[in-house]
Amino acid sequence: MELRELLLLFVAVCGVVFVLVMAVMAWALLRSNNPARGRPQTERSMGRVVSAAIVGTVLVITFLTVSSFYATRSIDWREADPATIVVRGQQWWWQFTYLDADPAKAFQTANELHIPVGTDVRLRLEATDVIHSFWIPNLTGKQDLVPGRENGLTLHADKPGIYRGQCAEFCGLQHSHMALLVVAEEPDDYARWLEAQRRAAVEPADGDAAAGKLVFVSKPCAACHTVRGTAAGGISGPDLTHVGSRSMIGAGLLENSRGSIAAWIADPQTLKPGNNMPLVPLTSEELRQLTVYLSELR
């Protein structure tokens, strides 16, 4: 049974019970007084009705429990294959590691998860710091990422599209801004995307972008961020190798554009107060060059 149907079933059954209870209450309140009030006979017949209602309650909740149980099974029985993607939640962004039998083909990305449509994608959920919760409302229910434990979740998209998700477990200051996007693609598109992501970062031709690269590796940026193919190998911030290809930055905070990248780098603490990226002092020239460089990392 699908989740949607289960929800409708519960709402319908509970709705009917509610209406019945309310109807009895309204009738009890409105009816003119019964002359037979409190006589042993009324007590007895009320006793019978109340018992019947209790029996009815038992039947209804048994039915609901059993349907819930079957829905659990049909949702859970899909977890067959080993995980192919590791999701790591951290304050306050998502890191995705695409595993591969060939370690050279494995790679990392952030905040935007691509999956092929029509197949089950098995995720392994881990947390670096505190508990987070992975939740894509339109694809599947949530599952917590718990430090010291490993959880799993299966994603399955039938239709291509972009699905928004958001961390659901309170995880501190910027819990509100810990969103992610799931991009479900046709298998061909997905394969192309994988191919592109596996490549190292594009080498900037010259001019601003090349200058920006220099700024990036010489400033503290490189201590926190990785850009594969360069000297930048920090791991406490998102992998930026293909940051230009993502549609949002800052875990769903801003649409990706030159302007927003510049704004982010110029003052991350105002845009997302308390997040773990500090304000790195830059001249406006450096900022412009960095922005050009980063937005060309597609």
Binding site: K142, A168, F170
Partner: peptide, 14 residues
């Protein structure tokens, strides 16, 4: 009663 159902709760929890 609705949130007591595991599958429904995976959606509405938190």
């Amino acid at each position: 009663v609705m949130v007591a159902s595991v599958p429904l709760d995976t959606q509405v929890h938190d």
